[in-house]
């Protein structure tokens, strides 16, 4: 069960500002029933002062989606549109006394609905991050949205991006893309990786691989009545043969991967290990 704050529970059980505004001056609609949450925000705006005089919502979603929507309406009531545009997803989360990490996307949805409603009021194209490349196909999340949310909330890991945007939370195929986007955003600020080790000659490399297999890998395998032998090295391709109990063992793929890991760590990051069939 999620650990919701009292404020979230309160706004979920007794949500404020529920419903539609007839003849609303602005409507913002985000999310979809397919994704599991959707929010429709209605605003009544004083044309002269540009102040939001009423805000209501309808939400399909979990407790935190409903509470976030209700919080959003409470926050923007009485604000001018300019002030409202400065409201961030963090403000919504803070109003609620915090949200569980996995539920941060609910606050992002609130912020998006607000942007959409204000754009609707101003007759602008809805900035629904529909432009640009779709990174996460399961939840229809674009690169632009990932970049924006990452920068605004200082997100540095794929898990954080998933918590805030849902991207990567479905089939997971786009996790590599997300990682690349994050690397691109933060690469300038991250400290340089440790200097590359000096390049080995082919002979040195083969000798090093031989040495590692002999002293670090074979003793472990032999303890399980298995064994491995170095057959050949072609560039970064290392070909080995599994012997003894390793032959035909269901875990042999793991063994090969383990050897690869070791060689990547100690010799060169590009090494691939193949077992001779």
């Amino acid at each position: 069960m999620w650990e919701y704050t009292e404020k979230v529970k309160d706004l979920f059980l007794k949500p404020r500002n529920v419903g539609e505004i007839e003849n609303a001056d602005a409507v913002g609609e985000v999310g979809s029933i397919v994704c599991g949450d959707a929010l429709k925000l209605f605003l009544k705006v004083d044309r002269e002062t540009g102040r939001i005089i009423d805000a209501k919502f309808q939400t399909f979603g979990c407790a935190s989606a409903i509470a976030s929507s209700s919080a959003l309406t409470e926050i923007v009531r009485g604000k001018t549109l300019e002030e409202a545009l400065k409201v961030t997803n963090k403000d919504i989360a803070e109003f609620l006394g915090g949200l569980p990490d996995e539920k941060m996307h609910c606050s992002v949805m609130g912020r998006e609905a607000l942007e959409a409603a204000i754009a609707n009021y101003r007759g602008e194209a809805v900035p629904l991050h529909k432009e640009g490349r779709t990174v996460c196909k399961c939840f229809d999340v674009t690169e632009e949205k990932i970049r924006k949310v990452a920068i605004e909330n200082h997100l540095t890991t794929v898990d954080e991006i998933t918590n805030f945007t849902k991207a990567g939370g479905g089939c997971g195929e786009c996790k590599g893309d997300i990682e690349e986007i994050l690397r691109d955003i933060w690469s300038v600020k991250l400290p340089e990786k440790t200097a590359k080790p000096k390049k080995l000659t082919n002979l040195q490399k083969i000798a090093l691989i031989q040495d590692i297999i002999e002293n670090e890998i074979r003793p472990g395998l032999q303890a399980d009545n298995g064994d491995a032998e170095l057959i050949d090295v072609e560039g970064d391709r290392v070909i080995i043969a599994l012997r003894g109990m390793c032959t035909g063992c269901v875990m042999s793929d793991v063994t090969v991967r383990g050897i690869q890991e070791k060689l990547r760590e100690l010799v060169s990051g590009g090494i691939t290990v193949e077992a001779q069939k």
């Binding site: 419903g19 959707a38 409903i66």
Partner: peptide, 15 residues
């Protein structure tokens, strides 16, 4: 359901 934007007689239609 009264909170939800979806429904048989609501403005938002299901995709």
């Amino acid at each position: 359901r009264s909170l939800s934007p979806f429904g048989r007689d609501k403005m938002s239609r299901l995709p």
